[in-house]
Amino acid sequence: MKKTSTRLADGRELLYYDSRDDSVRDAVDRRPLDPVAITPEIRRDPLLGDSVAIAAHRQNRTYQPPAGECPLCPSRDGRLSEIPAADYDVVVFENRFPSLAGDSGRCEVVCFTSDHHASFADLGEEQAALVLAAWTDRTAELAELPQVEQIFCFENRGAEIGVTLGHPHGQIYAYPFVSPRTALMLRSAADHRRRTGRNLFDDVVARELSAAERVVIAADHWVAFVPYAARWPYEIHLYPRRRVPDLRGLGEAARAELPGVYLELLRRFDRVFGDAEPPTPYISAWHQAPYRAAGRDGFALHLELFTVRRTPGKLKFLAGSESGMSVFINDVPPETAARRLREAASV
């Protein structure tokens, strides 16, 4: 992998990740952009203790442009975009409309491919491995920023999820705090350790492997399963068999196997509802340990992949119980979802 750093016209950083070591990235951003001057605010909820980002400038972000005006496509044929090059493998750059910036963290966009009409599931294993390398590199670099406590790599796909740009891409949030969901996991893990003397994440994976009925894929270095108390109709958790706190800790064997396993899971999501349906909307979220929180060493890197589609033509909306009280009601038994995802395996 070759990494090349440059700057966009408004001063934001852009990084090319290329599979070829002889790639040359010298294109200049020729757009007349003003320097970025954004100050999102972090406010703390006194009742829940949660942090909320206030980012009013995001009201003006680009929304569902036609393919010919996509800001994530390469700059070519006289049209200038966020990526100055005429083509690229993988690109990461600072978000023009970030939820977090400066002392309140950082937001980056990850473009998985220059092909506007592709999706992550369409990538080959080599390209998926390059994305993994970019996630890992950004995790390592952002962890060095003094204001950053946790790195969150994720992808939202589909208009049903709220995606504003159709180009295949994800994001990286560098939070200046420990996210509420991670804080809950850490508290549960600490309580489990006090009661049993064991690691909670290890016990969860062992239980799923022993029961087997919710396991979707059991590879040499990774295991994917529908969790016992799944919140979403189709939800998969993917863990490395050897527990590590974040992407940086993965061994070479696990790193080499991940692209094939991950691509297979995404393709099953596309197949489980049948070819008549549009591509399945989903959120793919990498959970990594915070850097300075107690319990970091006992945290387990894992991916949570889920869709808001509950059956062909119908979505799972977060209504009163879910949105008002955070009590989820799942219409699809996890064992049924796991069976259907196993049946959607590649031939």
Score class of each variant (00 low, 15 high):
Glu125Val: 09
Ser326His: 13
Arg242Glu: 13
Ala229Pro: 03
Val110Met: 03
Thr196Cys: 07
His302Gly: 00
Ile283Pro: 11
Ala212Met: 09
Ala86Lys: 11
Ile161Arg: 04
Ala285Thr: 13
Ala218Lys: 05
Met325Val: 11
Arg248Val: 05
Pro233His: 04
Thr4Ala: 15
Ala133Pro: 02
Asp137Gly: 11
Arg296Gln: 08
Arg241Tyr: 07
Ala118Ser: 12
Gly298His: 01
Asp26Gln: 12
Phe152Tyr: 06
Ala67Thr: 13
Gly324Lys: 07
Ile54Asp: 06
Pro290Gln: 04
Thr6Ser: 15
Arg61Leu: 06
Ala174Asn: 00
Asp10Gly: 04
Tyr63Cys: 13
Asp115Cys: 04
Thr39Lys: 11
Arg157Cys: 08
Gly105Ala: 01
Pro40Leu: 02
Ala134His: 06
Arg194Ala: 15
Val204Ile: 14
Arg7Lys: 15
Ile236Met: 12
Glu155His: 00
Val178Ile: 10
His117Ala: 12
Asn330Ile: 05
Glu213Gln: 12
His57Tyr: 05
Phe269Pro: 01
Gly260Cys: 03
Gln150Arg: 00
Ala67Val: 15
Ala85Cys: 00
Leu145Cys: 06
Ala56Trp: 07
Ala219Cys: 08
Ser326Trp: 14
Glu335Val: 13
Ala218Tyr: 03
Arg255His: 12
Leu130Glu: 00
Leu301Ser: 07
Arg12Cys: 02
Ser5Cys: 14
Arg268His: 01
Ala67Leu: 14
Arg255Phe: 12
Leu258Tyr: 09
Pro98Glu: 08
Ile283His: 15
Glu125Thr: 09
Ile161Leu: 13
